[in-house]
């Protein structure tokens, strides 16, 4: 696949929100658990609408959940590609 430059902090944010499960987040934003898995692995860049729904689920602005381009010092298990 082409290089996906949209990364995210979803895994860390789930952990910080009472160890929310992937299924709980998926139910909150209206997608399947597999889509959350793909997002966390960095295999998928969400639509703008889904990105906003995920940010709203964490009560954070979009740019604190998603980032564009390479970010240094990221947690290795996060979804930057």
């Amino acid at each position: 696949m082409g290089k996906n430059l949209v990364g995210n902090h979803i895994r860390r944010l789930r952990f910080n929100h009472g160890e929310m499960t992937q299924q709980q987040l998926a139910d909150m934003v209206g997608v399947t658990r597999q889509t959350i898995v793909a997002l966390e692995k960095g295999n998928y860049s969400p639509s703008l609408e889904l990105a906003f729904r995920i940010a709203r689920a964490f009560n954070l602005p979009l740019e604190e959940v998603f980032f564009y381009g390479e970010q240094t010092g990221q947690n290795e298990d996060e979804g930057s590609i």
Partner: peptide, 9 residues
């Protein structure tokens, strides 16, 4: 099994 197809599907 997933009950619906989301945007990725």
């Amino acid at each position: 099994e997933p009950k619906f197809a989301d945007e990725l599907d």
